[in-house]
């Protein structure tokens, strides 16, 4: 993945993440006790769908903003000196 692709992917993921915070407030359902499917209050149904959207966002973040560099850094062989230094 090129740096530009990775950078625009990160921007998209961050943008959607912030949008999710706004959507979470859902002031528009607060007074509404209507039951969806005959048993699920609409305020609860919205937040259940919100949870599904969180999972989708997680998938998107992994696809578009995965920290490949960090993964490579962690997987490279560590010298005993580095470990000793780290845990001292």
């Amino acid at each position: 993945m090129s740096t530009t692709e990775s950078s625009s992917g990160k921007t998209l993921v961050w943008g959607l993440f912030l949008l999710m915070f706004v959507l979470h407030q859902d002031k528009w359902w607060w007074d509404d006790g209507t039951l969806v499917f005959g048993f699920l209050p609409v305020g609860l149904a919205f937040h259940a769908v919100f949870s599904l959207a969180c999972a989708a966002l997680g998938w998107l973040a992994i696809k578009m903003a995965w920290p490949h560099d960090l993964e490579a850094f962690a997987e490279t062989e560590t010298t005993a000196a580095e470990k000793e230094e780290g845990s001292s």
Binding site: L70, F73, A74, T76, T78, E82, G86, S87
Partner: peptide, 12 residues
């Protein structure tokens, strides 16, 4: 993930 990376790398 970042903390895991440092933990793995430096033995924390």
């Amino acid at each position: 993930i970042r903390l895991w990376a440092f933990g793995k790398k430096y033995g924390y």
